[in-house]
Design a protein around this nucleic acid. Structure first.
Lengths: 346, 346
DNA sequence: TTGAAAGCGCTAACAT
DNA sequence: ATGTTAGCGCTTTCAA
């Protein structure tokens, strides 16, 4: 059996409280003399006393651990450096303050969502939150402080939860401006198959529509392609001889698969089709042609989200919940060009 | 105050044990009738009962969480995909089995090393373990199952701890064979400044020495360059007109900084100097020239380490601790070439 | 088959 | 300045 605080106390001839005070600094109104303290420390060492973290966190309701939740966790090494930046942003805030970071298994159902409120974590970063009824309910019932990353909606802040998100509308405007300047007049947006609960996708579609409208160009529901991540729908789509000369994607790693599909059907990028990615990490440079992409400051965003979360946990944040929005950049590389005449004829 | 198991029991007019049995399946010799069980579940739902994970893990001495420890945690997004692969290997084993993964802050001192034994984790993956006295002591005293990644030594297995490591000697032999085949006769190895406690570095140096010897070529202590990660020593080294025509590095991301230093001093890669990296992820392709590198199956290794750890945790592993070794591959790219005449004259 | 009691290791509150 | 008491929420052990 492990050595407990009581064993140390007995060996030292003092009370458990004295040991707790000396070893963990607990007990506000307990005072222990220097000599006694030294004896206690010595004995603790001799006995190889190891505090039981589980007992402590149970008692204190504090784990010094924050959780990182992904709505859909798959692989992290799909080429993009997205996840590495995310983690750097989180750890660079959490580690110096003494918090560990736990990556949680995929949230497959509500019950596991609820289970995040079970006290294991002092706080939660929930990335790619989907605004489903169930998830919103988790926010409401949650006793654990949370900050949502890549979500932004009054539905969320109204429930007292902060969000950190990039400026999706402005991001799409940059992409559209760039494409239109090159001569494109019809642009398609590749969206996930389920967009309803995905705040970001909704914003991006709205952004592209507004931007196209500002140029006097059309963009309707038919210009939103609800493709699976694998993008196997590409061939069928292209076979319909679509009017679009450019595609905007929802990630950068999806570009890799689209490149493959395009090649399979003899579609040249950017000659026959321009491609704009989302997220602009080193991965864009590894593609051929190099991917033109919208960049979001993911590391800064994750850092901010974590700072905010820790402030809430530690009671240093007294402002009402808000959406924290970060502007995007735009990195022009090789996957966008003026549309070919052939394409324009389409 | 939160709803406890006792509240549910009272509301249902049963004992706390009955609730525990129905909701968590605990209590071996407790039997609850189907009807009672349904009532309990209903009431738990109505009361929005949430089990307290801290109380449970305290009681059960089980957290369903494994820790990931790095000896020196810095940034993860330094270009290399190493960390992403590591994480994929770990999570692909841990998540399906219901374990979360916690990334721990840098181990700056022994006490934090000891603190990993405090019950927070059911098990620990310790990456880049350094065989210092303190660390070895942690292994001995540890009550938490551990598997060490990137370490390999009888000092460790003797203490009952498993290791997972790549075949460093064979890896270096491949690099040397390649370089010698190209015509190189003097090769330098870039090592960390502290190599004593780093099993891998010791193996690699031994491997390169043996391989060179097999070719009848010299390799001594003077051919080991103890450089900082930033490699700012490059210029001074080059100014000494070293006899080496090739450099083998200890990582791939270090190649990036070496490229910069080399360019600074007008050294062309691979014309004036061939470079071989360690780890061969997509990052190698982003460098110019693309980096020739030894590859290790990091994801498989991490997966195996985690499988092993979970087997130990769950009492399914009854074999004595061992070193689990994975062979390396070698990816020839553009950073190695036959040495120039000028270099050979050196 | 079900209930009651005890305790995991720690610390807040109170008493000395 | 130090010791005692009680209890966090859960589950194992034992009694009914």
């Amino acid at each position: 059996m492990a050595v407990t605080i009581r064993d140390v106390a007995n060996a030292a001839g003092v009370s458990p409280m004295a040991v707790s005070k000396v070893l963990h600094g607990k007990g506000a109104n307990v005072r222990v003399g220097k000599d006694t303290a030294d004896v206690i420390r010595k004995i603790a060492q001799d006995l190889q006393y190891q505090p039981n973290a589980l007992a402590r966190s149970f008692r204190l309701r504090r784990t010094n651990t924050i959780g990182l939740v992904f709505e859909n966790w798959t692989r992290v090494s799909d080429g993009s450096q997205y996840f590495a930046h995310l983690l750097d942003g989180i750890t660079s805030s959490a580690f110096p303050r003494g918090y560990a970071v736990t990556i949680c298994p995929q949230l497959s159902n509500v019950s596991s969502g609820e289970s995040l409120n079970d006290g294991r974590f002092d706080g939660l970063i929930w990335a790619k939150f989907e605004s489903t009824r169930e998830n919103l309910q988790v926010l409401e019932r949650g006793r654990t402080p949370m900050v949502l990353l890549h979500a932004s909606s009054p539905e969320i802040t109204r429930r007292g939860v902060n969000t950190v998100c990039c400026e999706n509308r402005q991001a799409m405007r940059q992409a559209v401006d760039h494409l239109v300047r090159l001569g494109h007049r019809r642009v398609a947006f590749v969206a996930p198959q389920e967009i309803e609960h995905n705040d970001e996708t909704v914003f991006r579609i709205e952004g592209i529509r507004q931007a196209m409208k500002a140029h006097g160009l059309p963009f309707g529901d038919g210009d939103v392609l609800n493709w699976d991540y694998a993008s196997e729908e590409f061939g069928d789509w292209w076979a319909t001889k679509p009017p679009h000369t450019a595609l905007t994607l929802r990630s950068e790693s999806q570009a890799g698969t689209i490149y493959v599909e395009a090649a399979k059907f003899g579609v040249r990028v950017p000659d026959d089709l321009s491609i704009v990615g989302f997220d602009s990490t080193a991965y864009c440079e590894t593609l051929s042609p190099k991917l033109t992409a919208i960049s979001q400051p993911i590391e800064d965003m994750a850092h901010r989200a974590t700072d905010l979360l820790l402030a809430i946990i530690e009671g240093r944040d007294h402002l009402p919940a808000a959406d924290h929005v970060f502007p995007c950049g735009f990195d022009i590389r090789e996957s966008t060009a003026r549309p070919s005449l052939k394409a324009e004829e389409n």
